[in-house]
Design a protein around this nucleic acid. Structure first.
Lengths: 245, 245
DNA sequence: ACCTGAACACCGTTCAAGT
DNA sequence: ACCTGAACACCGTTCAAGT
């Protein structure tokens, strides 16, 4: 309940300036700069000029700090366009979430427990999602399922994108490609070996020359970039929603 | 490349019985029993009756061991039904993945890097996914995007399900509910406060009495269980695919 | 009430040494 | 080639003590 600010701030007694906000901000700065593993209690305390143990007065353990960080990371999504249809609104909603995770990639690595669903920003984002679908004549539980589906999808795709980006894409040395080629064969993997050998199994983080293949079974496989995958996945879900109406 | 078994086994010299298989199996047993954090190099070695350092002869670091564990966890999915349409096959495909993760929940917590995509079972599962859609007149890159979408969705939903199950669902004490009620208000969250107060924002891990509401905007919200969410999300994607044809 | 210092029981990983 | 022992530089968290 710390996150909601209902625990009245103890304004009595000596306070040398530590606070929940400062601790969470310091932790986020470290995570942004050096990644989540660099966020140790000692590192956070040190960056604030306090001892490690001082943090435990504000946060009961590291997990709680992580949950606070995660929620704080999701503050980018503000308002949805009042014009346009539900597709436009859901798209900007999903893209807002995506932006937040891109800004704070480490947030994707913090496990989503029960607590995180009831954090302020989670509730706010869910509320915005429901607002985006206001015009749709669907029962509330279906809308919640849609929100859940879209946000999970957004997280997964962003996670994939970021892990590929930091590793420079699934690009192998020609030696590795060759060795893998001896093992990924038509006999063993009849449906995908061809794609692998053509390089189509490779996913790029950035936007390469995009090919939009015509719907033919034997079209040449192309490099795929995650941004396209994300847009495609969204449209897939939108198509599903439309088929419900 | 260890995972593909191309590194010839060094059958010369004294071997007191350690091997990649035994190390990975031991690590998986520990993870199944005590969770991923319990998988330390010391714990794995001890369970095999060796010193910690002996593992480093077979595995270059802990991350590599984790990647091997993750791939080994995905061996459940065998064959897809030859009867029925692509929906049936994709459904059993996704449910096979789901089963594997349910059996080895910790596998969801191992980060998916570039290496993991090219591991034997990942390639095998991707191949099966392509096979499931063989009849569909869609370009290969679209099929890959579908596979990616479905597997990410499956992972997310299973992850949600498991985190709720281990925490006993988002069930709050009446005290907590009350406190949250003072903070999740109609003014602040106009589109979701009503749902929260009605208990509809609560997601159950197991199957509670399911209500399939009629498509009315003001239908009473109901408890939602993750299994339904998963099936719903799959159908949403299937609807999207159909709209592509 | 707020912060510190010392201590505890761990981690992953190194290196040189034994057989 | 395979495994061990000792050591290093870390972790999160406790507890009693200071102001």
């Amino acid at each position: 309940m710390i996150a909601w600010g209902v625990d009245k701030a103890p304004s009595r007694g000596p306070s040398r300036g530590l606070s929940h906000d400062r601790i969470v901000s310091a932790a986020m700065e470290i995570a942004d700069r050096d990644g989540l593993p660099a966020v140790t209690m000692q590192a956070v305390a040190k960056s604030l000029g306090f001892t490690t143990m001082s943090l435990y007065r504000y946060v009961s353990n590291k997990d709680e700090l992580m949950t606070l960080m995660q929620d704080a990371a999701m503050r980018g999504l503000a308002e949805l366009p009042s014009e346009g249809g539900w597709e436009d609104r859901l798209r900007t909603w999903a893209e807002g979430i995506r932006e937040d995770y891109r800004r704070h990639p480490w947030a994707l690595d913090i496990p989503h427990g029960q607590a995180s669903v009831l954090m302020p920003n989670s509730v706010r984002v869910a509320d915005l999602g429901m607002a985006a679908m206001e015009e749709l004549p669907l029962p509330d539980d279906v809308k919640i399922a849609v929100i859940l589906t879209l946000s999970e999808l957004t997280m997964s795709m962003t996670s994939l994108e970021l892990s590929l980006a930091t590793e420079g894409g699934v690009r192998l040395t020609s030696d590795e490609t060759e060795r893998l080629g001896t093992v990924i064969t038509e006999e063993r993997f009849p449906h995908i070996a061809r794609l692998f050998q053509a390089g189509g199994f490779v996913v790029e983080p950035q936007s390469p020359p995009v090919d939009d293949g015509t719907p033919t079974d034997d079209s040449a496989p192309a490099d795929t970039n995650v941004d396209d995958e994300f847009v495609f996945a969204l449209e897939l879900v939108f198509g599903g929603i439309r088929s419900l109406l």
